[in-house]
Each structure stands twice: as C-alpha cells, then as structure tokens.
C-alpha cells in the first residue's frame, strides 16, 4: 500500500522534474545568442577552449530534440557543467554551499512556525480583542516588509546602535577553534539572518493559524470537547490547536520554494555564505550555467521536501489513507 503510493508519487515527481528541465532548456533557447553563449556568459567568454567543448557537447548544429535530449541526460546524471569563475564543477560548488543555506532556512522556518503558531493561537483565543488586533496588524505589517530591508534595519539596530550581534558572515574569522565556541559563534551570526528570513513567514503562519483556529472553533467536535467539561485552555490546546496545525504543514511545503528565494536576498544582506550568495555571485559574473544549476537543484529540493511533507501529513492526519 505505502510502497505503491510512494512509487506513484515518485513517478509524478520525475515527470515534474523533466518538465522543469525542459523549461530551463526553453529559457536558454529563447535567450538572445545561442545556447553556449548564454550558458557560458562572460564566465567562459575568455576561454575559447571551454566554449568549444560546450559546443561539441551540445552539438548546436544538430536538431533541437537532440540538443534537448543531451541537456536532459546531463541533468539526469546531475552533470550541471563547470564554472570557470570558481574553477569547479557546478554540482560540487552547490553542494559545498548547500549546508549553510539549509541551516539558515531551517532555523528560520522553525522560528516562523513556532512564532506563527504562538501568535496565531494568542490572537484566535480572543478574537477582536486588543491583543488580536495588535497581532493581526503587526503580522500584516511584517507581511508588507521587504525581507532585505528588514534585515538592514535589524543590522542598524542590533549591530550598529546596540552592537550586540554581528552584522554579517557566518563565523568570526580568527575566533577560537574548539567546537563549543564555534557553535556559539555561528549561532550568534545566525540570529539576525534567520529572524529576518523568518519575519515574512511568521506573519503568514500567524494569519493562517488564526484563521484556521477560528474555523476549527466552529466545528462540532469542539462543542463536544466543551460538553466534556474541559476548561477553555484544554479545549484550545488538546482539540483546536492540533487540528489547526494541519493546514500550516501543507503551506510549509508550498512555501519552501519561496523561502529559498527569500534566502537569496537575506544571504546577500548578511554575507551568509550559502546558495543565495552563490547565486548573487553567479549573477554578477554572468555565469548563467551556475545560476541554472542552482535553480534546478533548488527545484529538486522543493520536490523532495514536498514528497516528505505528503508522507508526514498522511501520518499526522488519520483521515488520509495513503493507499487510496
């Protein structure tokens, strides 16, 4: 049952993946200049040997479908090409930068989820109260704030004015080398970027959690819970909150791609050495090949995480029968 479901979802994922690769190819073909010009950009422009190699590989004189097939088969083998600027295969470059981005993303998603649930619950337990309007307005304000600007404002406050937190980077250059102080050091550097990235999503989760809780409060089983003699607190935390969190989990999957995008600007603002800053560097050196590689691998990541979330969801919500 479970196995068949997994196979089917994996099959769908592969189809989506191939289509994404086709979209990438389409962009390259539509761009001004030929495929190789675009791919190499200025990064390989100075290296005729590399250009020649690329032309050889893609066979630009061959029919379109052959080129597409070549492009796809490269991607399937996770051969994303070579970056002359960094003197490294694109795949290795991405994998090297990935951990920093993952650390940033997951710490901010954790902050966003925890904060969003807390504030959403606080607002929904007293709808239309002062507390509710304060939380809802703040959430809407956070929702309207560009991430990079929020980051800059936080730097002004906490690094420039108060001087309590580092304004950029991932670690102090000449810091102590024992494991504890490295962890402390990285965490200190992580605080501002992860809060910045979390702000927007915390606002989304707060709003969704509030709306979802208000919905659930109208359900019959909540009336049953009250009729059991539970206190309002018990009704909220044992029955309403667990049921309200479910939609948050599916939103988490939908938003993952957007978090990846958000991490580009946040990493640039804070000089966080992850995929986002790599994308920024690629942008400035016009290394389209590297940029495409980052885009493709990010998409793969989104698909994988969504697959995992589907499984998690079916485990959390007993109404969903995985085989059905």
């Amino acid at each position: 049952m479970m196995k068949r479901y997994l196979v089917r979802r994996a099959g769908q994922a592969v189809v989506v993946l191939i289509l994404i690769a086709c979209v990438n190819f389409l962009i390259l073909k539509l761009a001004p200049g030929d495929l190789v010009d675009v791919l190499a950009g200025e990064s390989g422009g100075s290296d005729p040997h590399y250009l020649h190699l690329l032309r050889e590989q893609y066979g630009l004189d061959r029919p379109l479908y052959v080129q597409l097939f070549q492009y796809l088969s490269n991607l399937v083998q996770l051969d994303l090409g070579y970056s002359f600027r960094f003197n490294m295969p694109v795949r290795d470059l991405i994998l090297m930068r990935l951990p920093a981005t993952l650390l940033l993303m997951f710490s901010s998603l954790a902050i966003a989820l925890l904060g969003g649930i807390t504030f959403g619950v606080a607002a929904a337990r007293a709808p239309r109260s002062l507390r509710d309007s304060l939380i809802s307005t703040t959430a809407l304000l956070a929702y309207s704030t560009p991430l990079f600007w929020a980051g800059l404002m936080l730097i002004i406050l906490f690094s420039v004015k108060f001087g309590v937190l580092p304004s950029g980077g991932m670690a102090t250059v000449d810091g102590p080398k024992d494991i504890v102080s490295i962890i402390v050091d990285v965490s200190r550097h992580l605080v501002l970027p992860s809060i910045t990235l979390a702000l927007f999503y915390m606002a989304t989760y707060t709003r969704l959690m509030r709306a979802s809780m208000l919905d659930i409060y109208n359900m019959d089983f909540v009336r049953t819970a009250k009729a059991k003699g539970l206190t309002p607190h018990q009704v909220a935390y044992r029955h309403v909150v667990p049921n309200s969190i479910l939609p948050l989990i599916s939103l988490f999957g939908v938003q993952l791609g957007s978090v990846l995008g958000g991490s580009v600007v946040v990493e640039v603002v804070f000089g966080w050495p992850g995929l986002g800053s790599l994308a920024f560097d690629a942008l400035f050196q016009r290394d389209v090949n590297l940029l495409m590689g980052i885009l493709f691998l990010s998409s793969v990541m989104v698909i994988l995480v969504n697959l995992a979330i589907d499984l998690l969801y079916s485990w959390l919500d007993p109404r969903i029968e995985v085989g059905a």
Partner: peptide
C-alpha cells in the same frame, strides 16, 4: 459548570462523526 459537564450533565449531538475529534 466544568465539574458538571460531561460528568453529571452530559450531551449527545446530532452528527456523531463530526462530533468526534477526527485526529484522536
């Protein structure tokens, strides 16, 4: 009232499936 509800005075509702928490 909390002491009485579900203990001394209890209630049965119209839609039994919807009246039970779906995830417990």
């Amino acid at each position: 009232m909390e002491q009485l509800r579900g203990n001394i005075i209890s209630m049965i509702f119209q839609d039994p499936i919807a009246s039970l928490n779906p995830i417990q």
